[in-house]
Design a protein around this nucleic acid. Structure first.
Lengths: 340, 340
DNA sequence: CTCCTGGATGTAAGCGCTTCCACTCACGAA
DNA sequence: TTCGTGAGTGGAAGCGCTTACATCCAGGAG
């Protein structure tokens, strides 16, 4: 120990407040938290002392005494695209309402993920983790330790609550819509990575409807650049697809860029679809046909589920699926009436 | 006290590890942190016990004893657009490298900002705050308490490090470029809010070059929707501007949308420019002329500056300005050679 | 006038950890 | 043989807070 303060605010402790107010620290605590009877004048004195000293309870002290952190963590692969950001917005908003701070951890480009996650786990009362960001055995470890855990876009799992947006059915609906346009040769851009993740489920759905008419094409990442690059190769070769179903909107934007660069018209020469309905999807030219998923709500629900778990009656399981919506715009082809 | 554990990981404490390893807690601590001599076999025993019990030190205990949180906070108005997100990415990456967790706080739509910020201040060793997200007297209070503070896009301020991207000069360069196109009637969309904030400085710069030829037009927020709405009114009226200089890219995207909706061609009927160079700027049609600012680097530098402040030699001041780059694309008009 | 009751307050025991200070042993130097 | 000496270890004192428990003191009931 070297006596540095940890209060973060000038190192004023409850003892100094107590001395100044002429009461005991117990009374100060009670006056501030309202956890016990405190006479009016006493409360006044305490509040005045707090004000004068700018006292702010040390969070570490409180946490230790209370046995909780009043903080939640969230682990995502990165924050580059709109998707994770939107989920985070929904999460932070609700967590904050519930009186919990939010500690973020991005695994992108990190080695030692295990250590980072452990460290994070030690500072929070519960954790939200996106599927495929953390090795399964780390998840196991966390779950085994009894840490409340909500997994987003992760396969169902005993010992944790899982949450995701619907994928397969929407993918089928999308594929069916494209068939209705008369297309017969398809590519699925951004081929499935981990088994059971969102993109994998989308691929399964598409595949189920289109069968051998659709070919998976791998992209390096789910970014505009990756989509662009992959689409350049795909569309540059002869006998390319009539429609490119992309794993998400950013890949789709990259594909549109590639088509333009190759002198192909979207949707006349090649149709393109995305997934997520990010802001840029609406402003793309042509506007992007996509599947809207409730990103913020995903985050908000995760926060609430986690809160319930923390407050809650023990190891709850559960899997919840949020509905999506097919958004038809012009990138998938021309539509009879007012096809937008 | 009610004995709930706060370790976050099953409630195993250092005492149990010590008992299992047959040593004292002091030795466990030393073995784990490497802060003192520990004999080889002893270390082995300790590590084995740690492994078997899945011990993870309680962060609250460590913080209290160490007198620090090993966490930094960041306060922003919202996370909706790419700008704050990008800064956050840069910030989180560096903070994490430096061994500090990142706690986020969004002030959007919150009352009781003061309390939220105070609470946050109590959990961190230092704070990064975006200009205009927190009332000045709260900033004063934080600074007075000795909390290391880095302000982004905030006027210089004794007792804190401030950091921002360049605005006025780039704004002048942009305005000059537009004059070169021959435009003579301008609007500045997203009129200045707080004195001294980024947009205000941009406005000042533009104004300095264009004088009375430019009219400020207020938008409600810095969003596509706000830009769209304001531009609809602006461009719908007769005698509209030949060029619309927007406070940021999102407003500009909204303006392009509005122009299209009104049957105006960008840039033939009206030129539009943005600011930031977000991803969507490149994909807009027409591609958006804008000013690129190093958003991630802003975050990264903030993290480093804060770290220096925390580690550092006392109350440092300083103001740092990052350079920007004018990105000419097609939304501002056609260019002679290979205009892009 | 005594006894009980409950409001108001203080005392002190932790919460889980780090680290200062002994203290115990070899072991090599004197 | 006797002292340092220093590696290895344990004891114990906090870090700042919450809260069970004890204490004290009116005021009303008997």
């Amino acid at each position: 120990m070297d006596g540095r303060e940890v209060s973060g605010a000038g190192g004023v402790t409850i003892y100094e407040v107590a001395r100044r107010a002429g009461v005991s620290i117990a009374t100060v605590s009670r006056a501030l938290r309202g956890t016990g009877p405190v006479a009016g004048p006493t409360r006044e004195k305490v509040l005045r002392a707090v004000e004068e000293l700018r006292f702010m309870p040390s969070r570490a002290g409180v946490s230790l005494a209370e046995g909780r952190h009043a903080a939640n963590g969230i682990v995502f692969p990165n924050l580059s695209g709109p998707y994770f950001t939107e989920v985070l917005i929904g999460y932070e908003e609700v967590a904050s309402e519930l009186g919990r701070s939010v500690i973020i951890l991005s695994t992108k480009g990190r080695d030692a993920i295990r250590d980072l996650v452990r460290e994070l786990a030690g500072r929070v009362d519960g954790l939200v983790v996106f599927g495929s960001t953390v090795p399964d055995d780390v998840i196991d470890e966390l779950a085994a330790s009894g840490l409340p855990l909500v997994l987003i876009s992760h396969a169902e799992r005993p010992g944790a609550v899982t949450l995701r947006s619907e994928n397969a059915a929407s993918a089928k609906a999308l594929a069916t819509h494209l068939l209705g346009h008369g297309y017969r040769r398809f590519a699925f851009l951004g081929a499935p990575y981990a088994t059971g993740d969102d993109v994998d489920l989308r691929w399964q759905g598409v595949r189920e409807v289109l069968g051998d008419a659709v070919t998976p094409v791998l992209t390096a990442e789910y970014t505009v650049e990756s989509g662009h690059e992959a689409a350049l190769r795909l569309l540059g070769a002869p006998g390319g697809p009539e429609a490119v179903i992309c794993s998400d909107d950013e890949v789709a934007l990259g594909a549109i860029l590639a088509a333009e660069q190759l002198g192909l018209s979207v949707p006349d020469d090649v149709a393109v679809t995305g997934w997520d309905d990010i802001m840029a999807a609406r402003h793309a030219r042509p506007a992007l046909t996509t599947v809207r998923q409730p990103m913020r709500e995903l985050g908000a629900r995760a926060a609430r589920a986690l809160d319930a778990l923390i407050a809650g009656a023990g190891p709850e399981d559960g899997h919840r699926v949020l509905q999506t919506e097919l958004i038809i715009r012009s990138s998938c082809g021309h539509h009879p009436p007012g096809g937008r």
